[in-house]
Amino acid sequence: MFRGGAGRFVSDAYGHSGLLGDSHDHTLDLHEPGVVRRFLDEAAARGLLPTAHGVEETDGWPLFDALVGWTAAVSGPAAGTAQ
Results as ranks from 00 to 15, higher is better:
1 M>V: 07
3 R>M: 05
3 R>H: 03
4 G>P: 05
4 G>H: 09
5 G>N: 11
5 G>F: 08
6 A>N: 04
9 F>V: 00
9 F>I: 02
10 V>D: 05
10 V>I: 14
10 V>F: 02
11 S>M: 06
11 S>F: 12
12 D>R: 11
13 A>I: 12
14 Y>P: 00
15 G>A: 10
15 G>P: 00
15 G>K: 09
16 H>Y: 08
21 G>T: 04
23 S>G: 13
27 T>K: 14
28 L>F: 15
30 L>Q: 02
32 E>Y: 13
33 P>S: 14
33 P>Q: 14
33 P>I: 08
34 G>R: 10
34 G>M: 10
34 G>I: 06
35 V>I: 10
35 V>L: 01
38 R>W: 11
38 R>Q: 15
40 L>R: 12
42 E>D: 13
43 A>E: 05
48 L>R: 04
48 L>I: 00
49 L>D: 03
50 P>Y: 12
52 A>E: 11
54 G>R: 03
59 D>I: 00
59 D>N: 15
60 G>S: 12
61 W>I: 06
64 F>V: 02
64 F>T: 05
64 F>Y: 05
65 D>T: 14
66 A>K: 03
67 L>D: 01
68 V>G: 06
70 W>P: 00
71 T>C: 04
71 T>W: 01
72 A>G: 02
73 A>T: 05
78 A>L: 09
78 A>F: 01
80 G>S: 02
